[in-house]
Amino acid sequence: MSDHAPVIIDVAGLTLSDDDRRRLAHPLVGGMILFGRNWQDREQLSALCAEIKQVRGDLLVCVDHEGGRVQRFRTDGFTHLPPMRRFGEAWMKDARGREGSGAMRAMAAATAAGYVLGAELRACNVDFSFTPVLDLDFGESSVIGDRAFHRDPRIATLLAKALMHGLLQAGVANCGKHFPGHGFVRADSHLEIPVDARPLKAILQDDAIPFGWLATTLTSVMPAHVIYSKVDPRPAGFSPKWLNDILRDQLQFQGAIFSDDLSMEGARKIEGREVSYTEAAVVALNAGCDMVLLCNESVNSEGGRAIDEMLDGLAEAQSRGEWRANEVSEQRRHALLPCGPASSWDALMTEPRYMQALSLLP
Protein backbone atom coordinates (compact mmCIF):
# COMPACT_ATOMS: atom_id res chain seq x y z
CA MET A 1 0.00 0.00 0.00
CA SER A 2 1.37 3.40 -0.90
CA ASP A 3 2.26 5.98 1.69
CA HIS A 4 -0.76 8.09 2.69
CA ALA A 5 -1.39 9.05 6.30
CA PRO A 6 -4.79 10.77 6.23
CA VAL A 7 -5.95 10.61 9.86
CA ILE A 8 -5.53 13.43 12.41
CA ILE A 9 -6.22 12.26 16.00
CA ASP A 10 -5.92 13.75 19.50
CA VAL A 11 -4.41 12.65 22.80
CA ALA A 12 -5.94 12.77 26.26
CA GLY A 13 -3.46 14.55 28.48
CA LEU A 14 -0.34 16.61 29.07
CA THR A 15 2.08 13.83 28.10
CA LEU A 16 1.83 10.82 25.80
CA SER A 17 0.56 7.49 27.11
CA ASP A 18 1.65 4.17 25.62
CA ASP A 19 -1.69 4.04 23.78
CA ASP A 20 -1.09 7.53 22.36
CA ARG A 21 2.35 6.49 21.09
CA ARG A 22 0.95 3.33 19.52
CA ARG A 23 -1.78 5.27 17.73
CA LEU A 24 0.54 8.05 16.56
CA ALA A 25 2.88 5.41 15.11
CA HIS A 26 0.03 3.88 13.07
CA PRO A 27 0.87 4.22 9.34
CA LEU A 28 -2.51 5.86 8.64
CA VAL A 29 -1.99 8.63 11.22
CA GLY A 30 -0.55 11.82 9.74
CA GLY A 31 -0.90 14.22 12.63
CA MET A 32 -2.60 15.21 15.83
CA ILE A 33 -4.69 18.12 17.07
CA LEU A 34 -4.13 19.80 20.44
CA PHE A 35 -6.88 21.02 22.78
CA GLY A 36 -6.97 23.09 25.97
CA ARG A 37 -6.67 19.89 28.03
CA ASN A 38 -3.21 19.32 26.46
CA TRP A 39 -1.98 22.67 27.83
CA GLN A 40 -0.44 23.45 31.20
CA ASP A 41 2.34 25.87 30.29
CA ARG A 42 4.84 26.53 27.50
CA GLU A 43 7.45 24.13 28.84
CA GLN A 44 4.96 21.26 29.04
CA LEU A 45 3.51 22.03 25.58
CA SER A 46 6.97 22.13 23.97
CA ALA A 47 7.86 18.82 25.62
CA LEU A 48 4.59 17.19 24.47
CA CYS A 49 5.13 18.33 20.87
CA ALA A 50 8.74 17.08 20.98
CA GLU A 51 7.43 13.70 22.26
CA ILE A 52 5.02 13.55 19.31
CA LYS A 53 7.83 14.28 16.83
CA GLN A 54 9.94 11.52 18.40
CA VAL A 55 7.24 9.01 17.40
CA ARG A 56 7.49 10.22 13.81
CA GLY A 57 9.18 13.40 12.66
CA ASP A 58 6.69 14.22 9.91
CA LEU A 59 3.54 14.14 12.08
CA LEU A 60 1.67 17.44 11.68
CA VAL A 61 1.00 19.00 15.10
CA CYS A 62 -2.16 21.12 14.71
CA VAL A 63 -4.38 23.33 16.85
CA ASP A 64 -7.50 25.48 16.52
CA HIS A 65 -5.86 28.78 17.45
CA GLU A 66 -7.67 31.65 15.74
CA GLY A 67 -7.90 34.42 18.33
CA GLY A 68 -10.96 35.61 20.24
CA ARG A 69 -12.91 32.76 21.83
CA VAL A 70 -11.15 30.06 19.77
CA GLN A 71 -7.65 30.16 21.23
CA ARG A 72 -6.37 27.06 23.02
CA PHE A 73 -3.34 28.58 24.77
CA ARG A 74 -4.00 31.78 26.73
CA THR A 75 -1.63 31.84 29.70
CA ASP A 76 2.13 31.74 30.40
CA GLY A 77 2.91 34.57 27.99
CA PHE A 78 0.68 33.71 25.02
CA THR A 79 -0.77 36.88 23.50
CA HIS A 80 -4.56 37.17 23.73
CA LEU A 81 -5.39 37.71 20.08
CA PRO A 82 -8.55 39.64 19.21
CA PRO A 83 -11.53 38.02 17.46
CA MET A 84 -11.37 38.50 13.69
CA ARG A 85 -14.40 40.80 13.71
CA ARG A 86 -12.18 43.42 15.39
CA PHE A 87 -10.12 43.72 12.20
CA GLY A 88 -13.27 44.15 10.13
CA GLU A 89 -14.41 46.92 12.46
CA ALA A 90 -11.00 48.61 12.21
CA TRP A 91 -11.29 48.50 8.41
CA MET A 92 -14.39 50.71 8.57
CA LYS A 93 -12.73 53.42 10.68
CA ASP A 94 -10.96 55.85 8.36
CA ALA A 95 -8.93 58.73 9.72
CA ARG A 96 -10.64 62.04 8.98
CA GLY A 97 -10.33 62.93 5.31
CA ARG A 98 -8.25 59.86 4.48
CA GLU A 99 -10.45 57.34 2.72
CA GLY A 100 -9.08 53.80 2.93
CA SER A 101 -6.74 54.50 5.85
CA GLY A 102 -8.80 52.21 8.09
CA ALA A 103 -8.37 49.41 5.56
CA MET A 104 -4.61 49.88 5.45
CA ARG A 105 -4.31 49.89 9.24
CA ALA A 106 -6.58 46.86 9.55
CA MET A 107 -4.50 44.85 7.05
CA ALA A 108 -1.27 45.76 8.84
CA ALA A 109 -2.85 44.68 12.13
CA ALA A 110 -4.09 41.39 10.62
CA THR A 111 -0.61 40.61 9.29
CA ALA A 112 0.79 41.38 12.76
CA ALA A 113 -1.77 39.02 14.34
CA GLY A 114 -0.84 36.25 11.91
CA TYR A 115 2.85 36.66 12.72
CA VAL A 116 2.31 36.71 16.50
CA LEU A 117 0.02 33.67 16.28
CA GLY A 118 2.40 31.65 14.11
CA ALA A 119 5.63 32.64 15.87
CA GLU A 120 4.29 31.88 19.35
CA LEU A 121 3.02 28.46 18.27
CA ARG A 122 6.29 27.57 16.57
CA ALA A 123 8.28 28.66 19.62
CA CYS A 124 6.42 25.84 21.43
CA ASN A 125 6.96 23.26 18.62
CA VAL A 126 3.38 23.50 17.25
CA ASP A 127 3.34 23.27 13.44
CA PHE A 128 0.00 24.51 12.21
CA SER A 129 -3.25 26.28 13.12
CA PHE A 130 -6.67 25.85 11.51
CA THR A 131 -7.09 29.53 10.62
CA PRO A 132 -8.39 31.86 9.14
CA VAL A 133 -12.19 31.72 9.17
CA LEU A 134 -13.49 32.82 5.76
CA ASP A 135 -17.17 32.56 6.71
CA LEU A 136 -19.12 35.78 6.23
CA ASP A 137 -20.75 37.48 9.20
CA PHE A 138 -24.47 37.38 8.38
CA GLY A 139 -25.30 37.93 12.05
CA GLU A 140 -27.10 34.55 12.11
CA SER A 141 -24.59 31.94 13.25
CA SER A 142 -23.74 31.75 16.94
CA VAL A 143 -20.95 29.24 16.28
CA ILE A 144 -19.27 31.63 13.79
CA GLY A 145 -20.26 35.09 15.10
CA ASP A 146 -17.23 37.27 15.82
CA ARG A 147 -14.87 34.62 14.40
CA ALA A 148 -15.70 36.10 10.96
CA PHE A 149 -13.89 39.18 9.66
CA HIS A 150 -16.86 40.87 7.98
CA ARG A 151 -20.10 40.49 6.03
CA ASP A 152 -18.49 41.85 2.83
CA PRO A 153 -16.56 39.06 1.04
CA ARG A 154 -14.06 41.58 -0.36
CA ILE A 155 -13.10 42.83 3.11
CA ALA A 156 -13.04 39.28 4.56
CA THR A 157 -10.77 38.15 1.71
CA LEU A 158 -8.21 40.92 2.05
CA LEU A 159 -8.04 40.68 5.84
CA ALA A 160 -7.65 36.89 5.63
CA LYS A 161 -4.89 37.32 3.05
CA ALA A 162 -3.14 39.80 5.35
CA LEU A 163 -3.38 37.36 8.28
CA MET A 164 -2.02 34.54 6.09
CA HIS A 165 0.90 36.79 5.12
CA GLY A 166 1.78 37.08 8.81
CA LEU A 167 1.51 33.33 9.30
CA LEU A 168 3.80 32.84 6.29
CA GLN A 169 6.41 35.17 7.83
CA ALA A 170 6.43 32.79 10.80
CA GLY A 171 6.75 29.77 8.47
CA VAL A 172 3.21 28.55 9.17
CA ALA A 173 0.68 27.31 6.59
CA ASN A 174 -3.00 28.28 6.70
CA CYS A 175 -6.48 26.75 6.52
CA GLY A 176 -9.51 28.57 5.12
CA LYS A 177 -12.73 27.42 6.73
CA HIS A 178 -15.57 26.46 6.43
CA PHE A 179 -16.05 25.95 2.66
CA PRO A 180 -18.30 27.07 0.99
CA GLY A 181 -19.50 29.12 3.99
CA HIS A 182 -21.00 28.43 7.43
CA GLY A 183 -22.06 31.99 8.27
CA PHE A 184 -25.59 31.92 6.83
CA VAL A 185 -27.01 29.02 8.87
CA ARG A 186 -28.02 29.36 12.51
CA ALA A 187 -27.58 25.72 13.64
CA ASP A 188 -24.31 24.58 15.25
CA SER A 189 -22.88 21.63 13.32
CA HIS A 190 -21.26 20.29 16.53
CA LEU A 191 -24.81 19.50 17.72
CA GLU A 192 -26.93 19.04 14.57
CA ILE A 193 -26.69 19.20 10.78
CA PRO A 194 -27.41 22.72 9.55
CA VAL A 195 -29.24 23.02 6.22
CA ASP A 196 -28.66 25.98 3.88
CA ALA A 197 -31.44 26.05 1.26
CA ARG A 198 -30.01 28.80 -0.95
CA PRO A 199 -29.34 28.00 -4.61
CA LEU A 200 -25.78 27.28 -5.75
CA LYS A 201 -25.56 30.57 -7.65
CA ALA A 202 -26.27 32.62 -4.50
CA ILE A 203 -23.62 30.76 -2.50
CA LEU A 204 -20.98 31.05 -5.25
CA GLN A 205 -21.65 34.77 -5.66
CA ASP A 206 -21.30 35.50 -1.95
CA ASP A 207 -19.99 33.04 0.69
CA ALA A 208 -17.70 31.03 -1.61
CA ILE A 209 -16.09 34.03 -3.31
CA PRO A 210 -13.20 34.33 -0.77
CA PHE A 211 -12.22 30.71 -1.45
CA GLY A 212 -11.95 31.44 -5.17
CA TRP A 213 -10.10 34.73 -4.74
CA LEU A 214 -7.68 33.09 -2.29
CA ALA A 215 -7.27 29.79 -4.18
CA THR A 216 -3.60 30.48 -4.93
CA THR A 217 -2.84 31.66 -1.36
CA LEU A 218 -4.64 29.05 0.73
CA THR A 219 -2.52 26.02 1.65
CA SER A 220 -5.52 24.09 3.01
CA VAL A 221 -9.29 24.28 3.28
CA MET A 222 -11.79 22.77 5.71
CA PRO A 223 -15.34 22.23 4.39
CA ALA A 224 -18.43 22.89 6.49
CA HIS A 225 -20.56 20.16 8.05
CA VAL A 226 -23.52 21.89 6.39
CA ILE A 227 -25.99 20.48 3.85
CA TYR A 228 -26.60 22.86 0.94
CA SER A 229 -29.85 21.18 -0.02
CA LYS A 230 -30.22 22.73 -3.48
CA VAL A 231 -26.73 21.45 -4.42
CA ASP A 232 -26.20 18.04 -2.76
CA PRO A 233 -28.00 16.02 -0.05
CA ARG A 234 -24.63 15.36 1.62
CA PRO A 235 -22.76 17.85 3.83
CA ALA A 236 -20.02 19.66 1.88
CA GLY A 237 -17.20 17.61 3.43
CA PHE A 238 -18.73 14.39 2.08
CA SER A 239 -19.67 15.79 -1.32
CA PRO A 240 -17.59 15.13 -4.47
CA LYS A 241 -19.63 17.86 -6.14
CA TRP A 242 -18.49 20.49 -3.63
CA LEU A 243 -14.90 19.27 -3.19
CA ASN A 244 -13.96 18.08 -6.68
CA ASP A 245 -16.33 19.81 -9.12
CA ILE A 246 -16.52 23.19 -7.37
CA LEU A 247 -13.49 23.65 -5.08
CA ARG A 248 -10.90 21.81 -7.21
CA ASP A 249 -12.18 22.23 -10.79
CA GLN A 250 -14.16 25.48 -10.76
CA LEU A 251 -12.21 27.45 -8.12
CA GLN A 252 -8.87 25.81 -9.04
CA PHE A 253 -7.81 25.12 -5.44
CA GLN A 254 -4.64 22.99 -5.31
CA GLY A 255 -3.94 22.65 -1.58
CA ALA A 256 -4.98 20.16 1.10
CA ILE A 257 -8.59 19.51 2.11
CA PHE A 258 -9.33 18.50 5.73
CA SER A 259 -12.64 17.03 6.81
CA ASP A 260 -14.08 18.82 9.81
CA ASP A 261 -14.21 16.70 12.98
CA LEU A 262 -15.90 13.36 12.21
CA SER A 263 -17.19 13.12 15.81
CA MET A 264 -19.42 16.21 15.34
CA GLU A 265 -23.13 15.55 14.97
CA GLY A 266 -22.94 17.08 11.48
CA ALA A 267 -20.76 14.15 10.41
CA ARG A 268 -22.67 11.29 12.01
CA LYS A 269 -25.43 11.08 9.39
CA ILE A 270 -25.02 10.93 5.63
CA GLU A 271 -28.20 11.23 3.56
CA GLY A 272 -30.28 10.45 6.66
CA ARG A 273 -28.36 7.31 7.62
CA GLU A 274 -26.29 6.94 10.79
CA VAL A 275 -22.70 6.06 9.90
CA SER A 276 -19.67 4.82 11.83
CA TYR A 277 -16.48 6.87 12.04
CA THR A 278 -14.84 4.47 9.58
CA GLU A 279 -17.65 4.89 7.09
CA ALA A 280 -17.62 8.66 7.49
CA ALA A 281 -13.84 8.71 6.92
CA VAL A 282 -14.10 6.52 3.78
CA VAL A 283 -16.87 8.72 2.34
CA ALA A 284 -14.87 11.91 3.11
CA LEU A 285 -11.68 10.54 1.52
CA ASN A 286 -13.57 9.34 -1.57
CA ALA A 287 -15.33 12.72 -1.83
CA GLY A 288 -11.98 14.50 -2.12
CA CYS A 289 -10.65 15.08 1.40
CA ASP A 290 -6.90 14.54 1.78
CA MET A 291 -7.12 14.22 5.57
CA VAL A 292 -9.83 13.42 8.11
CA LEU A 293 -10.04 14.57 11.73
CA LEU A 294 -11.37 12.53 14.62
CA CYS A 295 -11.36 14.69 17.77
CA ASN A 296 -12.01 14.19 21.48
CA GLU A 297 -12.28 10.40 21.28
CA SER A 298 -9.14 9.85 23.38
CA VAL A 299 -11.01 11.18 26.45
CA ASN A 300 -14.21 9.16 26.19
CA SER A 301 -15.08 6.48 28.74
CA GLU A 302 -13.61 3.71 26.60
CA GLY A 303 -10.10 5.18 26.54
CA GLY A 304 -9.95 5.96 22.86
CA ARG A 305 -11.34 2.69 21.55
CA ALA A 306 -13.18 4.60 18.82
CA ILE A 307 -9.82 5.78 17.43
CA ASP A 308 -8.49 2.21 17.29
CA GLU A 309 -11.70 0.99 15.66
CA MET A 310 -11.52 3.69 13.01
CA LEU A 311 -7.83 3.04 12.23
CA ASP A 312 -8.44 -0.71 11.99
CA GLY A 313 -11.58 -0.12 9.93
CA LEU A 314 -9.81 2.25 7.54
CA ALA A 315 -6.94 -0.20 7.05
CA GLU A 316 -9.43 -3.00 6.28
CA ALA A 317 -11.42 -0.74 3.94
CA GLN A 318 -8.20 0.15 2.13
CA SER A 319 -7.25 -3.52 1.72
CA ARG A 320 -10.73 -4.17 0.28
CA GLY A 321 -10.24 -1.32 -2.21
CA GLU A 322 -12.99 0.87 -0.69
CA TRP A 323 -10.62 3.84 -0.68
CA ARG A 324 -7.22 4.31 -2.28
CA ALA A 325 -4.11 5.87 -0.81
CA ASN A 326 -3.26 9.06 -2.63
CA GLU A 327 0.34 10.13 -3.11
CA VAL A 328 -0.70 13.70 -3.98
CA SER A 329 -2.68 13.91 -0.72
CA GLU A 330 0.42 12.91 1.20
CA GLN A 331 2.46 15.59 -0.60
CA ARG A 332 -0.19 18.14 0.37
CA ARG A 333 0.06 17.03 4.01
CA HIS A 334 3.85 17.43 3.95
CA ALA A 335 3.48 20.89 2.42
CA LEU A 336 1.69 22.00 5.62
CA LEU A 337 4.72 21.30 7.82
CA PRO A 338 6.42 24.56 8.86
CA CYS A 339 9.28 25.99 6.85
CA GLY A 340 12.35 27.85 8.04
CA PRO A 341 13.87 27.91 11.54
CA ALA A 342 11.66 28.74 14.53
CA SER A 343 12.72 31.27 17.15
CA SER A 344 12.90 30.11 20.75
CA TRP A 345 10.45 31.85 23.08
CA ASP A 346 13.22 33.89 24.72
CA ALA A 347 14.62 34.99 21.36
CA LEU A 348 11.12 35.86 20.14
CA MET A 349 10.50 38.15 23.11
CA THR A 350 13.27 40.52 21.97
CA GLU A 351 12.82 40.12 18.21
CA PRO A 352 12.11 43.52 16.58
CA ARG A 353 9.53 42.12 14.13
CA TYR A 354 7.60 40.45 16.96
CA MET A 355 7.74 43.58 19.15
CA GLN A 356 6.46 45.68 16.25
CA ALA A 357 3.68 43.18 15.54
CA LEU A 358 2.49 43.33 19.16
CA SER A 359 2.29 47.13 18.93
CA LEU A 360 0.03 46.90 15.85
CA LEU A 361 -2.62 44.60 17.36
CA PRO A 362 -6.01 46.27 17.92
Rank of each mutant, 00 (worst) to 15 (best):
Y115T: 07
F138V: 10
R56P: 00
E327A: 14
N296P: 04
S301P: 13
R105H: 12
Y228S: 08
Q169E: 12
L251Y: 10
I227R: 14
A148E: 01
R74I: 09
W323A: 07
L314M: 10
E51C: 00
M310V: 06
E89N: 13
E51N: 07
L121N: 04
K161D: 13
P362I: 08
P235Y: 07
F184Q: 01
V195D: 04
W323E: 08
L28Q: 10
A113P: 07
A284K: 04
D196H: 05
S344H: 11
L262H: 13
R147M: 01
I9A: 00
P83G: 02
A148V: 00
S142W: 11
E279I: 00
R198E: 05
K93H: 15
L311K: 00
Q356R: 15
T15E: 15
L16N: 02
I144C: 01
D127E: 07
A256K: 03
T75R: 14
T217V: 12
F35Y: 15
Q254S: 08
P338K: 06
A335S: 14
A112G: 06
R353A: 15
V226W: 10
S359W: 11
Y277T: 03
V116G: 00
R154Q: 09
D312I: 10
D152G: 11
S301Y: 10
D207T: 06
H334P: 03
R96P: 14
L159W: 00
D206I: 11
I33C: 12
